[in-house]
Simulated scan of single mutants.
Amino acid sequence: MKNLKDVKIMLVDDEPHIIQFLELGLMNEGFEIRTASDGINAVNLALDFQPQVVVLDVMMPGMDGWEVCRLLKKNLNNVAIIMLTAKDEVEDRVKGLTTGADDYVVKPFSFEELLARIGARLRNQFPALFSEVSFGPFRLDDRRKEIQYQDRVLELSPTEYELLKYLVINHGIVLSKSTILDQVWGYDFGGEENIVEVYIRSLREKLNDKDHRLIRTLRGAGYRVDLP
Protein backbone atom coordinates (compact mmCIF):
# COMPACT_ATOMS: atom_id res chain seq x y z
CA MET A 1 0.00 0.00 0.00
CA LYS A 2 1.37 3.43 -0.93
CA ASN A 3 1.35 6.86 0.69
CA LEU A 4 0.47 5.57 4.14
CA LYS A 5 1.90 8.74 5.66
CA ASP A 6 -1.03 10.53 4.03
CA VAL A 7 -3.64 8.20 5.57
CA LYS A 8 -5.27 9.17 8.86
CA ILE A 9 -7.12 6.58 10.94
CA MET A 10 -9.15 7.26 14.07
CA LEU A 11 -9.81 4.47 16.58
CA VAL A 12 -12.87 4.71 18.84
CA ASP A 13 -13.36 2.12 21.60
CA ASP A 14 -13.88 2.27 25.36
CA GLU A 15 -11.66 -0.78 25.96
CA PRO A 16 -8.07 0.49 26.50
CA HIS A 17 -6.39 -2.81 25.59
CA ILE A 18 -8.10 -2.88 22.19
CA ILE A 19 -7.11 0.73 21.49
CA GLN A 20 -3.48 0.07 22.47
CA PHE A 21 -3.28 -3.11 20.41
CA LEU A 22 -4.72 -1.50 17.27
CA GLU A 23 -2.84 1.77 17.67
CA LEU A 24 0.54 0.02 17.90
CA GLY A 25 -0.19 -2.28 14.97
CA LEU A 26 -1.50 0.45 12.66
CA MET A 27 1.31 2.88 13.53
CA ASN A 28 3.79 0.13 12.63
CA GLU A 29 2.04 -0.08 9.24
CA GLY A 30 2.74 3.63 8.72
CA PHE A 31 -0.68 5.18 9.40
CA GLU A 32 -1.22 8.40 11.36
CA ILE A 33 -3.43 7.48 14.33
CA ARG A 34 -5.67 9.32 16.79
CA THR A 35 -7.81 7.62 19.45
CA ALA A 36 -10.97 8.34 21.43
CA SER A 37 -12.67 6.36 24.19
CA ASP A 38 -16.19 7.78 23.93
CA GLY A 39 -18.59 9.05 21.30
CA ILE A 40 -18.61 12.77 22.10
CA ASN A 41 -14.82 13.05 22.06
CA ALA A 42 -14.73 10.96 18.88
CA VAL A 43 -17.00 13.38 17.00
CA ASN A 44 -15.04 16.45 18.15
CA LEU A 45 -11.70 14.81 17.35
CA ALA A 46 -12.84 13.68 13.90
CA LEU A 47 -13.91 17.20 12.91
CA ASP A 48 -10.40 18.42 13.71
CA PHE A 49 -8.39 15.38 12.54
CA GLN A 50 -10.35 14.70 9.30
CA PRO A 51 -9.54 10.96 9.10
CA GLN A 52 -10.02 8.88 5.98
CA VAL A 53 -10.95 5.82 8.06
CA VAL A 54 -12.69 5.47 11.42
CA VAL A 55 -12.65 2.13 13.26
CA LEU A 56 -15.66 2.49 15.53
CA ASP A 57 -16.96 0.28 18.34
CA VAL A 58 -20.75 -0.08 18.51
CA MET A 59 -21.23 -0.57 22.26
CA MET A 60 -19.96 2.46 24.19
CA PRO A 61 -21.34 4.33 27.22
CA GLY A 62 -23.22 7.52 26.48
CA MET A 63 -23.32 8.11 22.73
CA ASP A 64 -23.18 4.72 21.00
CA GLY A 65 -21.39 3.87 17.78
CA TRP A 66 -24.52 4.12 15.62
CA GLU A 67 -25.04 7.77 16.59
CA VAL A 68 -21.34 8.56 16.16
CA CYS A 69 -21.46 6.97 12.71
CA ARG A 70 -24.49 9.04 11.72
CA LEU A 71 -22.89 12.29 12.89
CA LEU A 72 -19.55 11.58 11.20
CA LYS A 73 -21.21 10.77 7.88
CA LYS A 74 -23.24 13.97 8.16
CA ASN A 75 -20.32 16.26 9.04
CA LEU A 76 -17.30 14.84 7.17
CA ASN A 77 -16.93 15.07 3.41
CA ASN A 78 -15.59 11.57 2.81
CA VAL A 79 -14.89 9.03 5.53
CA ALA A 80 -14.87 5.24 5.58
CA ILE A 81 -16.37 3.81 8.77
CA ILE A 82 -15.66 0.25 9.89
CA MET A 83 -17.88 -0.81 12.78
CA LEU A 84 -16.67 -3.22 15.48
CA THR A 85 -19.56 -5.38 16.66
CA ALA A 86 -19.65 -7.97 19.43
CA LYS A 87 -22.15 -10.17 17.62
CA ASP A 88 -22.81 -11.13 14.03
CA GLU A 89 -26.52 -10.46 13.69
CA VAL A 90 -28.40 -9.34 10.59
CA GLU A 91 -30.10 -6.53 12.54
CA ASP A 92 -26.75 -5.05 13.55
CA ARG A 93 -25.41 -5.24 10.00
CA VAL A 94 -28.52 -3.61 8.53
CA LYS A 95 -28.56 -0.91 11.21
CA GLY A 96 -24.92 -0.14 10.58
CA LEU A 97 -25.39 0.12 6.82
CA THR A 98 -28.48 2.33 7.13
CA THR A 99 -26.60 4.74 9.42
CA GLY A 100 -23.78 4.99 6.90
CA ALA A 101 -21.23 2.36 7.95
CA ASP A 102 -19.09 1.06 5.09
CA ASP A 103 -18.03 -2.25 6.63
CA TYR A 104 -18.10 -4.14 9.88
CA VAL A 105 -15.86 -6.57 11.74
CA VAL A 106 -17.13 -8.98 14.40
CA LYS A 107 -15.22 -9.28 17.68
CA PRO A 108 -12.98 -11.15 18.30
CA PHE A 109 -11.12 -10.40 15.06
CA SER A 110 -7.57 -10.72 13.80
CA PHE A 111 -5.42 -7.67 13.13
CA GLU A 112 -4.74 -9.03 9.63
CA GLU A 113 -8.46 -9.07 8.82
CA LEU A 114 -8.96 -5.49 10.02
CA LEU A 115 -5.90 -4.35 8.07
CA ALA A 116 -7.26 -6.02 4.92
CA ARG A 117 -10.62 -4.30 5.37
CA ILE A 118 -8.96 -0.92 5.94
CA GLY A 119 -7.00 -1.41 2.72
CA ALA A 120 -10.19 -2.35 0.88
CA ARG A 121 -12.02 0.77 2.09
CA LEU A 122 -9.11 3.03 1.12
CA ARG A 123 -8.97 1.59 -2.39
CA ASN A 124 -12.74 1.85 -2.78
CA GLN A 125 -13.25 5.36 -1.39
CA PHE A 126 -9.87 7.03 -1.94
CA PRO A 127 -8.63 5.77 -5.32
CA ALA A 128 -6.57 8.95 -5.75
CA LEU A 129 -4.12 7.48 -3.21
CA PHE A 130 -3.43 4.67 -5.66
CA SER A 131 -2.90 4.93 -9.39
CA GLU A 132 -3.00 1.31 -10.50
CA VAL A 133 -3.22 -1.40 -7.86
CA SER A 134 -2.00 -4.93 -8.53
CA PHE A 135 -3.15 -8.11 -6.79
CA GLY A 136 -1.41 -11.18 -8.14
CA PRO A 137 -2.52 -11.54 -11.78
CA PHE A 138 -5.05 -8.67 -11.45
CA ARG A 139 -4.43 -5.00 -12.12
CA LEU A 140 -7.16 -2.54 -11.14
CA ASP A 141 -7.46 0.97 -12.51
CA ASP A 142 -10.45 2.56 -10.82
CA ARG A 143 -10.17 5.81 -12.73
CA ARG A 144 -10.59 3.95 -16.02
CA LYS A 145 -12.98 1.41 -14.47
CA GLU A 146 -10.77 -1.27 -15.96
CA ILE A 147 -9.48 -4.61 -14.70
CA GLN A 148 -6.68 -6.56 -16.36
CA TYR A 149 -6.22 -10.26 -15.70
CA GLN A 150 -2.92 -11.82 -16.80
CA ASP A 151 -2.27 -8.66 -18.88
CA ARG A 152 -5.61 -9.04 -20.66
CA VAL A 153 -8.25 -6.32 -20.29
CA LEU A 154 -11.54 -7.92 -19.26
CA GLU A 155 -14.76 -6.90 -20.99
CA LEU A 156 -16.98 -6.23 -17.97
CA SER A 157 -20.34 -4.61 -17.40
CA PRO A 158 -20.41 -1.89 -14.70
CA THR A 159 -21.85 -4.34 -12.15
CA GLU A 160 -19.36 -7.07 -13.10
CA TYR A 161 -16.56 -4.54 -12.65
CA GLU A 162 -17.74 -3.54 -9.17
CA LEU A 163 -18.27 -7.17 -8.14
CA LEU A 164 -14.88 -8.39 -9.34
CA LYS A 165 -13.16 -5.36 -7.83
CA TYR A 166 -14.81 -6.07 -4.47
CA LEU A 167 -13.86 -9.75 -4.59
CA VAL A 168 -10.25 -9.08 -5.58
CA ILE A 169 -9.68 -6.24 -3.10
CA ASN A 170 -10.99 -8.52 -0.35
CA HIS A 171 -9.03 -11.55 -1.55
CA GLY A 172 -8.56 -14.18 1.12
CA ILE A 173 -11.72 -13.09 2.98
CA VAL A 174 -14.91 -15.16 2.79
CA LEU A 175 -17.74 -12.91 1.59
CA SER A 176 -21.35 -13.98 2.06
CA LYS A 177 -24.01 -13.31 -0.57
CA SER A 178 -25.71 -10.81 1.75
CA THR A 179 -22.45 -8.92 2.30
CA ILE A 180 -21.78 -8.83 -1.45
CA LEU A 181 -25.31 -7.55 -2.12
CA ASP A 182 -24.89 -4.79 0.49
CA GLN A 183 -21.52 -3.64 -0.88
CA VAL A 184 -22.06 -4.02 -4.63
CA TRP A 185 -25.81 -3.64 -5.19
CA GLY A 186 -26.59 -1.55 -2.06
CA TYR A 187 -28.44 -2.41 1.13
CA ASP A 188 -31.77 -1.23 -0.37
CA PHE A 189 -31.56 -3.73 -3.26
CA GLY A 190 -34.91 -5.49 -3.41
CA GLY A 191 -33.98 -8.44 -5.61
CA GLU A 192 -33.03 -12.03 -4.85
CA GLU A 193 -29.66 -13.18 -3.49
CA ASN A 194 -29.39 -15.56 -6.46
CA ILE A 195 -28.39 -12.58 -8.63
CA VAL A 196 -24.94 -12.94 -7.04
CA GLU A 197 -24.65 -16.50 -8.37
CA VAL A 198 -25.53 -15.32 -11.88
CA TYR A 199 -22.82 -12.66 -11.88
CA ILE A 200 -20.24 -15.00 -10.31
CA ARG A 201 -20.93 -17.50 -13.09
CA SER A 202 -20.39 -14.79 -15.70
CA LEU A 203 -17.11 -13.67 -14.11
CA ARG A 204 -15.82 -17.24 -14.00
CA GLU A 205 -16.50 -17.60 -17.72
CA LYS A 206 -14.62 -14.39 -18.52
CA LEU A 207 -11.73 -15.45 -16.28
CA ASN A 208 -11.71 -18.98 -17.74
CA ASP A 209 -12.11 -20.20 -14.17
CA LYS A 210 -13.82 -23.50 -15.04
CA ASP A 211 -12.50 -25.32 -11.97
CA HIS A 212 -13.44 -22.50 -9.58
CA ARG A 213 -9.85 -22.25 -8.37
CA LEU A 214 -9.82 -18.45 -8.59
CA ILE A 215 -13.30 -17.61 -7.29
CA ARG A 216 -14.03 -20.36 -4.77
CA THR A 217 -17.47 -21.28 -3.45
CA LEU A 218 -17.57 -22.12 0.25
CA ARG A 219 -20.85 -23.96 0.67
CA GLY A 220 -23.09 -22.24 3.19
CA ALA A 221 -20.59 -19.38 3.71
CA GLY A 222 -20.08 -17.49 0.45
CA TYR A 223 -17.23 -16.80 -1.97
CA ARG A 224 -13.49 -16.19 -1.65
CA VAL A 225 -10.92 -15.12 -4.22
CA ASP A 226 -7.65 -17.03 -3.87
CA LEU A 227 -4.72 -15.41 -5.66
CA PRO A 228 -1.81 -17.50 -6.95
Rank of each mutant, 00 (worst) to 15 (best):
V168C: 01
E192I: 11
T179G: 10
S157F: 12
V174C: 00
I173E: 02
L163H: 09
W185N: 09
S178Y: 02
I180C: 05
I169G: 01
G172F: 00
P158G: 11
L154T: 07
V184R: 00
L181T: 10
S178R: 08
L181N: 07
E155R: 15
F189V: 03
W185S: 10
L181F: 10
W185F: 15
E192L: 13
G172Q: 04
T179W: 08
F189I: 07
P158K: 11
L181Y: 07
V196A: 07
G190P: 06
E160I: 11
V196C: 08
K165Y: 03
E192Q: 14
P158E: 08
E160Y: 14
L167Y: 06
V184C: 07
Q183V: 09
K177E: 02
I173K: 03
Y166W: 13
F189S: 07
S176G: 01
L164Q: 00
Y187D: 09
Y161I: 05
W185G: 08
L167N: 03
L175Q: 05
I180N: 02
G191P: 06
N170W: 03
V184E: 04
I173M: 04
P158S: 09
Y187T: 10
W185V: 09
V184I: 10
V184S: 00
S157A: 14
E160M: 12
G172V: 04
D182T: 06
H171T: 05
H171D: 08
L154S: 07
K165N: 05
I195E: 12
V168S: 01
Y161N: 09
D182Q: 07
Q183A: 15
Y187K: 11
Y187E: 10
L154K: 10
P158N: 06
G172R: 01
I173F: 01
N170R: 05
G190A: 10
G186F: 05
E160N: 13
G191C: 06
D182H: 10
E162C: 11
G191H: 05
N194F: 14
E162Q: 15
I173D: 00
D182Y: 05
T159S: 12
V174M: 01
Y166G: 08
Q183H: 15
V174E: 02
L163D: 03
T179C: 08
D182C: 05
V168A: 00
E192T: 12
S176L: 02
I169D: 04
T159G: 08
Q183L: 12
S157P: 11
I169Q: 08
T179M: 10
N194R: 14
T159M: 15
S157K: 14
